[in-house]
């Protein structure tokens, strides 16, 4: 990484006069200040609320109950279902769309000129479609009676009766994931195409002179170069998918049953339908801790210094 070069050049003098290294740099202060207000305060507030019994409907102030909410959480089956759904939804979507994006980037690599530009522009189209629209559009296409997907599959004779895409507890989550992958794949395609283009020509040329086969070229030369881009873009998308509310809410509201209820949906329902802010906050805190652990492990694995 280029970052390491920059760090190395600053490290040597750092050791010499370590005692004079300041605590903080004024240039980060605006960011730190803004984040302290818009994020620090809500996080602390959430921590405090999570130890209380607090329902917005009762006109009673939050009452301290210690770990009560956390105890409840352990025995709450919906929490565990949501956690599982969140993991399946997030990692499933990200892994599949990153692989598809990678395949597409490699496939279109040899296209040049206007052909490449137009194919790339067309392939990127889904990314410009807002999430809410993705949700409406796919919900419409998935309709059991009158949905175009069932209609086409019936016409082609691939199925003999309409499939309940969003209304079958086994199919609903994969169906939403398909919509999600559709919307997300262009992102990977774009990033990985850019990363492919950034591989120095000499590397490719020397591999070619060594008569590397196509597959060994992909696996031994290109993939190592793409690793960093792949991991960082995956991390970005994992974060964004953990937070994905629009698609699921507009398509199934977490149903049928709890089969598409993710943590976002569950917390939203708890907080804004039941107004149970105490318990919702506790789930938020646990979720936060899980994310932090995940991020640290991921970064450690990547050996990236943020």
């Amino acid at each position: 990484m280029a970052a390491t070069a920059a760090q190395r050049s600053t490290k040597a003098p750092a050791r010499k006069n370590a005692e004079r290294v300041p605590w903080i740099d004024w240039m980060v202060l605006p960011t730190v200040g803004v984040l302290a207000v818009v994020i620090g305060y809500p996080v602390i507030y959430t921590l405090v609320l999570s130890t209380t019994k607090y329902n917005m409907l009762d006109m009673v102030p939050p009452r301290y109950i210690g770990g009560g909410n956390y105890e409840h959480l352990l025995s709450d089956p919906i929490f565990w279902i949501s956690l599982k759904n969140t993991a399946v939804y997030t990692f499933g979507s990200v892994i599949i769309s990153s692989l598809l994006g990678l395949a597409l980037a490699l496939l279109t690599e040899s296209l040049t000129g206007w052909r490449f530009r137009s194919v790339r522009a067309l392939l990127l189209t889904p990314w410009a479609v807002p999430f809410v629209v993705v949700a409406f559009l796919f919900r419409y296409m998935y309709l059991q009676n009158g949905g175009v997907i069932n209609a086409v599959l019936l016409d082609l004779g691939l199925i003999d009766k309409p499939v309940l895409w969003l209304n079958n507890s086994a199919l609903a989550l994969p169906a939403i994931m398909a919509a999600n992958i559709w919307a997300m794949m262009p992102f990977f395609f774009l990033l990985l195409s850019a990363a492919l283009a950034a591989i120095p020509n000499e590397v490719i040329e020397s591999a070619r002179i060594d008569k590397a086969g196509t597959w060994s070229m992909v696996f031994h030369i290109k993939l190592p170069f793409l690793k960093s881009a792949l991991f960082i873009s995956s991390l970005l998308m994992i974060i964004s998918n953990f937070n994905d509310f629009a698609k699921i809410w507009a398509m199934t509201q977490g149903g049928p049953g709890y089969s598409t209820t993710t943590l976002v949906i569950y917390v939203y329902r708890l907080a804004f339908e039941n107004f149970d802010f105490g318990y919702a906050s506790a789930i938020g805190v646990v979720w936060l801790v899980l994310l932090l652990v995940f991020a640290l492990v991921y970064l450690r694995a990547l050996k990236v210094n943020p």
Partner: peptide, 20 residues
């Protein structure tokens, strides 16, 4: 106060009956 959370639970059950 029990209606909204109850509705989620009951309708989730109805959906399970209808779709699974």
């Amino acid at each position: 106060p029990r209606f909204a959370p109850g509705a989620t639970a009951i309708m989730a059950g109805v959906q399970q009956a209808v779709t699974g």
